[in-house]
Amino acid sequence: MPEAAIAEKTVELRILRYRPASDDRPSFGSFEVPYAEDMSVLQALQTVKDTLDGTLSFRWSCRMAVCGSCGMMINGKPRLACNTFLRNLPPGPITIEPLNNFPIERDLVVTVGDFVKKIESIYPYIIPKEPKTIADGPYLQTPAQLAAYESFSDCINCMLCYAACPQFGENPDFIGPGAMALLQRYNGDSRDGGRQKRLDTIHGEDGVWSCTAVGICSEVCPKHVDPANAVNQNKTNSAFDFFLRFLRKEGAR
């Protein structure tokens, strides 16, 4: 095939732009970039930034679905721009918007501060059940004990699950699927003893109880973490904790 014929094929990107210094509200801008069979949406955005409009703002880093930076709404669905390929999208213009349910800082960049605070709030580290010195040797774990939490440790904090969650859209204070997956990663770990501390942070409407088991968070997760499972099994834990709190030994936390 002659090279000119390849270069002629283009794809239209409709990108939601927002420049806080000059725009009252976001509006769509349209860009035409050369199409290539192996091109990701991220590469298309980089082409726009390099050749058409250097002011276009978006987050990205690893280009291989590990860093979780390039989450955005592509044709209305929350996806990572780096592992969404043009060839897999239906023909016609591609609509690109910042992640739903988050305040827009600029163009495709959203505010992540609240999400980071939520992650910090659930004690995202192992609180050893029994402190050991190095001389005591490592904490051992069976394959079954690893399997109990392993998928939850695959979260890359891309926030696609939050963009998919209508209850987070309704209540921005809802702790949400991503932070709950991280909570379950530690509460499900056989070496951890911080379960009670973490459960205390998730009672109430802003805890697990905003969730109505819509389940789309798990469907959009690029790492198959199944955050819906993390939220919903902790509704049971939260309910048990509420009813059994009188039986708990004082100072057990």
């Binding site: 109990a148 819906a228 499972n229 099994q233 049971t236």
Partner: peptide
């Protein structure tokens, strides 16, 4: 279909039972 989302992971023989 929703049931597996609401229960703890079921581990048999060190492996997760698929939902």
């Amino acid at each position: 279909q929703t049931l597996p989302k609401t229960m703890p992971k079921l581990i048999l023989d060190g492996k997760q039972v698929p939902p």
